[in-house]
Design a protein around this nucleic acid. Structure first.
Lengths: 399, 399
DNA sequence: ATGAAAGCGCTAACAT
DNA sequence: ATGTTAGCGCTTTCAT
């Protein structure tokens, strides 16, 4: 409550704009305008970071002048520009990103949803994304859904609140409906799906050569003499499972082999889950002589288990899996895999997204699906027939 | 340029406040006030996300009323609150995080600098950080320095621009000076170092039991009969190298063994670098009979190389390393390690940082160093003496 | 209980 | 070339 400096009344006093940064008052009773001196400084400024206002005050110039100098605009004298730059340096000024993006309506930030950080595949996808982001001046915010649908929706909430310019998404294993993605697409926010995709979301997608990779691996197993090839899949309904299953079936059919439903196993592809699947397969009346795992990790678990049982690899049972890693290379015997180059997936995903962001109007997203070319790497786990160059093959260094 | 609607002049017209949301003009020449109708809508609103203004308009209430309702303030009628909440839901309103933090001066965002995402250790640290962040309502922005000092300084720039409430940092291998960290601490922004630390930065630090872990591992090697233990370190000067070296030396001294400088090897601890170091050690006149690697990965490379040479492990040469992973467990022979629980490091780091942020004034950072307790895991790579329970030990599942 | 308006830091359009 | 000011979306006094 401000007392009028003239009539000393308190009731009729109201605020009336500002005068040189100070609150100006107006007394209705005596019709008098006034400002109150004192305590202009030292309000509550916690960790006060330098702002352009500070720089402007420091130099006694207008705020916009500082802004102009800092942003390298044309209509400013060289002299002033240098003065401002020097002052900014001295005061250790850093632009406030929040203020900038609030004004511009764009954040140059991309939201990334990853189902599982600890999974080496996603770590490498992320590395690819990061690299491109660095080079293109985009920031990224990474959210982990931890394979939970619920957390995934919360992630979207967060990312939306951060007003990211676009999203890169690989959905969780739990996710079966895709309305939450379509909703943000409906808001006009570009989304690109990578690795785990859904046909229900009409937006660009980056995937592996799921079909070709599976086909090649299974055909390779067959070429090595396997006649009863089993497949360990991820959750039923996950597109990646279906696509890889299709490649598997095609290879069998091409070579006139029967499709045995007992050999087709869906799973959660969790760590250590390979052991259970292996035990199941071995318990069959006629167990398989080759196993293809949708995830090389599960194959490695199986190799360990097979060794524990004293089985001969690849003579009694051969292995091949999707995805590569030093682990596949260092295990004994080294494992045959289809390397899908995770970092390339990440790079392609973010590049596509950025293109999308820049051409929101002209970019027609629906059905634009990019397949990243993979590579068959043959190692001992499947080499039943003596190869040409057995030594070098296992030395292949992953990307 | 606005033409006067009365005198049709264009020179004397200036803006003069707003009238019901429309720009009001004043013509100096004919002394006339007017507003121009038309084109109030459809300016340029790209991806227009619903704001509280939209909600307020929709309901015909004041903006502040909406804000109050949304933030569960007390001075608002239950009726209005529900009305607002319903409207917000219908219009799919999401708070703009930028605007909120711009106002509040806090972002509830923590910046994390990681030297190398693809490194499983950091991936797991990150997972720990993420988990706590999720539970405490903090967002995190992850920046990768990619082991480069230059990128590291750019990362800081970015994070500062984002006005993060605090920073979690593990510096790059290149980093030898720490002025850039001290500068942000000087600004009053809380920083916590994890894993890779420096005494030159006066701030809380979270580390492993570097000394104890090394000591235990080396003492274990000695207890198994090793008499010439070599150590593969990281870059010289990196504190982590020095601390682990100290533990190594202490174990040797305790057991009356000589410290042989030939057995102490600094390196970049890069992938595949273990092989070169192994070759060097084996080329010595008197090669070691046990090798301790600061990073278990390099030890695994050495194991592969030793096997290639047909050496017997652990009889001819024993191995032990810092850090655990399935890889150490699955390799043949499984490797003895000191598990330092990466996720716990991450959790401790972010919890410390949050406490610091909340108690900026009272929190005395300098020299507060927390050591995360680790665990010696003995496996076949070092078991020269037949142990009690050789089977189970190698089955230990990493966290 | 509700409305009006300042201000967080910045940019851009406008005025000088 | 430089200063003035609206406005980005939101919270928060202050006034009613």
């Amino acid at each position: 409550m401000q007392r009028c400096v003239k009539c000393n009344a308190v009731d009729g006093v109201i605020r009336a704009g500002f005068l040189r940064g100070r609150q100006r008052f107006f007394c209705k009773l005596c019709n008098f305008n006034f400002v109150v001196e004192g305590e202009t400084e030292s309000k509550k400024k916690k960790t006060h970071q330098t702002t352009i206002v500070d720089v402007a005050k420091h130099l006694g110039v207008a705020i916009s002048t500082v802004s102009r100098a800092l942003n390298d605009k044309s209509d400013i004298s060289q002299e002033t520009r240098e003065l401002v730059l020097k002052a900014a340096m001295e005061l250790d000024y850093r632009p406030n990103f929040m203020a900038q993006s609030l004004h511009k309506g764009e954040t140059r930030t991309i939201g990334v949803i990853v189902p599982d950080v600890e999974h080496p595949f996603f770590a490498r996808v992320l590395a690819g994304i990061q690299k491109v982001a660095n080079n293109t001046g985009y920031r990224i915010i990474v959210c982990h859904s931890n394979e939970s649908y619920e957390i995934e929706t919360l992630n979207i909430e967060t990312l939306l609140a951060c007003r990211v310019d676009g999203l890169l998404v690989s959905h969780s294993k739990e996710t079966a409906t895709f309305g939450h993605f379509n909703r943000i697409i409906g808001k006009g926010i570009p989304v690109v799906l990578y690795d785990r995709i859904s046909d229900d979301v009409k937006t660009p997608k980056i995937i592996h050569q799921d079909y070709k990779g599976s086909f090649d691996l299974v055909e390779h197993l067959i070429s090595q003499g396997c006649r009863r090839v089993a497949i360990m899949l991820g959750p039923e309904g996950m597109l990646i499972s279906e696509r890889r299953l299709a490649g598997y079936k095609a290879a069998l059919i091409k070579h006139g082999l029967e499709i045995n439903e007992d050999y087709i196993v869906y799973s959660g592809i969790n760590q250590h889950e390979g052991i259970g699947v292996f035990n199941y397969l071995m318990s069959l009346q006629v167990p398989p002589d080759g196993i293809f795992t949708i995830l090389y990790r599960n194959g490695i678990e199986m190799i360990m288990e097979a060794k524990k049982r004293g089985m001969k690899i690849p003579e009694e049972i051969a292995f091949a899996g999707f995805g590569d890693d030093i682990l596949a290379e260092l295990i004994d015997p080294p494992m045959t895999v289809f390397n899908h180059f995770p970092a390339k997936i990440g790079e392609a995903a973010i590049l596509t997204l950025i293109e999308y962001i820049h051409n929101k109007d002209t970019f027609y997203p629906a059905d634009k699906t990019i397949e990243i070319e993979g590579e068959l790497i043959i190692r001992q786990s499947s080499m039943k027939r003596s190869p040409e160059k057995p030594e070098r093959v296992s030395m292949k260094i992953a990307e």
